[in-house]
């Protein structure tokens, strides 16, 4: 589970690159997410646009990584594919995250 990172003027966008976020990949996801947001400020947007399969372990990992954020940093989600959006809806976790239909892009800055 590789993650790409783009720092914009508005947020740090952390994007998945794998098609699956499942039990086999959650430990790597958590480790890489932790590194990606260690010095983040303000908003972190997790771009899940590459993920077309999310199981309960993957969902639990997304909930859990909120606790890895520096104090005061907020996690938002973006670009959920239909199967992923459905898991959020079925579990009602769509009610606890701000979810953007597409990544709200601002001007990128060096990171």
């Amino acid at each position: 589970m590789e993650l790409s990172i783009i720092q914009t003027t508005q947020a740090r966008v952390v994007a998945t690159t794998a098609a699956r976020l499942d039990a086999a990949g959650v430990l790597a996801f958590k480790d890489r997410f932790r590194a990606a947001v260690a010095d983040a400020e303000g908003r972190v947007i997790l771009d899940l646009g590459s993920v077309n399969f999310l199981d309960s372990s993957g969902l639990g990992a997304i909930v859990a990584v909120r606790r890895l954020l520096p104090e005061g940093v907020v996690l938002e989600l973006a670009a959920l594919t239909p199967p992923v959006e459905r898991v959020f809806r079925l579990t009602r976790m769509d009610s606890v995250f701000t979810i953007h239909p597409v990544v709200p892009i601002g001007p990128a800055t060096a990171h």
């Binding site: 990992a61 009610s95 606890v96």
Partner: peptide
Amino acid sequence: PATLPEGGFG
């Protein structure tokens, strides 16, 4: 959901 459980979804 408001308690942000990290497991039990399966």
